[in-house]
Amino acid sequence: MQAPQKARWDVFILILRYLKSAPRKGLIYHPNRHMDLVAYSDANWAGSASDRRSTMGYCTFVGGNMVSWGSKKQTTVARSSAEAEYRAMEHTTAELIWLRSLLLQTSLLVSKLMKMFYDNQAVIYIASNPVYHEQIKHIEIDCQFVRDAVIKKLVETPFVSSSGQLADVLTKSLFAPNFCMCCNKLSMGDLYAPA
Rank of each mutant, 00 (worst) to 15 (best):
H91V: 06
V169F: 06
S187T: 01
A43F: 08
R87N: 09
T55N: 01
I136F: 06
N120P: 01
L174V: 10
V38M: 07
K153Y: 11
A149N: 06
S68K: 03
S68T: 15
V155I: 15
N120M: 06
N44F: 09
L102I: 08
D168S: 06
Y132K: 06
M116W: 03
P158D: 10
L170D: 03
L191Q: 08
K72F: 11
E90M: 11
T93Y: 03
Y58T: 04
W45S: 00
W69D: 03
G47D: 07
R24E: 11
A167D: 04
P23T: 13
S107L: 12
T171E: 04
G26N: 13
D42F: 06
I97F: 04
E134Q: 12
K72R: 15
V67R: 00
Q105W: 12
D51N: 12
L104R: 05
Y192W: 11
T76I: 15
C182H: 00
L102P: 02
K20V: 07
E83V: 08
V169T: 06
N65T: 03
A49R: 08
L103H: 03
L27G: 07
R33V: 08
M1S: 15
E85F: 08
I15F: 10
N120W: 09
K25S: 08
S71W: 07
I28P: 02
A167Y: 04
M114A: 09
K115S: 08
S162Y: 11
R33S: 11
A22V: 14
F175D: 10
Q2G: 10
H138R: 09
K72Q: 11
V77R: 05
R53D: 07
A88R: 04
R8S: 12
K115F: 12
L108F: 14
L37W: 03
I141G: 06
R87C: 07
I139S: 01
D168A: 08
I15Y: 09
K20M: 10
